[in-house]
Design a protein around this nucleic acid. Structure first.
Lengths: 255, 255
DNA sequence: CGCAATTTTGACGTAGTTCAACACGTGTGG
DNA sequence: CCACACGTGTTGAACTACGTCAAAATTGCG
């Protein structure tokens, strides 16, 4: 396993390139504009490591790898640089419901802007890192730079689009099989750009979390994955997921 | 009610008040600012009727009540003034998949801004009306009025929030019962503000459309609704839906 | 009123859940 | 070093919810 020695920061290749990042709209344009260049430094922290395998870092609290916590006041929004983040919500009965995953290049917590508080908790699965955009300074800078504002509009509009698509992929699938097929295609598509492959990706999330998210039992997920392998739709060894036939998978999505 | 008589159309009470409308951010602030007052006239058309029961109106095409069509170029975004709109997507196999409903005060098609084309078709269920914001003029005006821009940000941020919440309500529910309970609570909450009741609303959508959206069969939906009535969770006569016990319904949402 | 469309009801088969046991890897302490 | 607990993933058998197909009942509309 290619494990580049670690924590004096991973190899560059583990990070998504800025060109593939959702946050680009409010990071990069300012690079080209000399006058605004300084602005990003007021709100942006690049590639902050968030690690669930080590003891908790400088972040506020309890659980290791926790990026932010449900119901806490909004401080910053993020984009994922590396790793995978799990979004979940504590329920009245104490159990947790996984409400989503975020992959490198994707935005995180932007839906907290409306009520100024986080709607779910986010935790890194294994090692991860994020770019952090602090909201208060961003707002201040936006007053000064109209371009920044219109870029923020673009960013939110794009996110609205992505979210709609991701959710359409999952609502109202009649069988678990269709649901899983849609999920696998969805996550591979979302990882395609930065991994350079439409068919291969590491499945870092645990079966429990995936099953929780999809609303099926661990056991069912296990059986479905086994069936998909038998039928040569996917191959799955360890964490390595490979889609063997995208078209065949698509044909399983009968909503 | 401040109703500047309009299009000599439906009774005033059928329209959502502007105070309860998602679009308010880019409609109303400009009312208070005398200088910008004129701007809205450049991009905003108020309370345009869209009616599926009459013959097709001045709109482009075929089906009556159609507001916009999937894959067509983005011209305007909308907010629902009255009635209910169904969002659906034509699938490869020719069938249609209902991907959402929109109620008075809610935004429509904002997720088309990213790719400048509509991601689904929208059709009025029965009679409806919308406020229409044309994108090109809006963009032009945004250049001139920074306030308008930041209001647009607020609007998109809010929509991002709403969308996330609506979808969390529906993904990964283990039983159809839980799914339906979540759906009923969701749509009643979304109609609460403008109807003035958390528990009562007209269920204008057909059973087929609801079942399609939820990904269950018409028959199953029918049986579930019957069961919910037996168990005194809801009452449903004709189109009148009443939630009899919100807490009991909530307890059915075991995700 | 009467036909068509929509909704509801019934009987039956299958897919997915439930509960239990088991296999595997990892970390912990004697 | 082994024994043990623990988390994760897989497998089997019984039960149940949902889908399917078919028919009856209701609603809506001309």
């Amino acid at each position: 396993m290619i494990e580049p020695r670690e924590n004096q920061k991973q190899a560059t290749s583990d990070f998504v390139e800025c060109d593939n990042c959702s946050m680009q709209a409010i990071c990069e344009p300012l690079k080209t504009d000399n006058q605004s260049l300084d602005l990003t430094s007021h709100y942006l922290s690049r590639r902050v490591p968030v690690d669930s395998s080590k003891k908790s870092i400088s972040l506020t609290d309890t659980s290791k790898g926790l990026l932010f916590k449900q119901d806490h006041a909004l401080i910053a929004i993020y984009s994922v640089c590396s790793g995978v983040f799990k979004l979940y919500r504590e329920q009245e009965d104490g159990s947790q419901k996984v409400v989503g995953f975020r992959f490198p290049g994707e935005l995180l917590a932007e839906d907290a802007i409306f009520q100024q508080k986080y709607n779910y908790s986010a935790v890194a699965i294994g090692e991860g890192s994020v770019c952090e955009v602090s909201i208060a300074p961003l707002n201040a800078c936006s007053q000064l730079a109209p371009d920044l504002q219109s870029n923020l509009i673009q960013l939110l509009a794009k996110q609205s689009y992505e979210q709609q698509r991701n959710n359409e992929a999952l609502i109202g699938k009649k069988s678990s099989e269709a649901l899983l097929a849609a999920f696998l295609l969805n996550i591979c598509a979302r990882n395609a750009k930065h991994l350079g492959s439409e068919t291969d990706m590491p499945l870092l999330m645990s079966r429990s979390d995936i099953a929780n998210f999809l609303g099926v039992r661990r056991e069912t997920l296990s059986r479905l994955l086994a069936r998909f392998q038998q039928e040569q739709l996917i191959s799955l060894q360890g964490k390595k997921l490979k889609l063997l036939s995208i078209s065949a998978l698509k044909s399983r999505i009968i909503s």
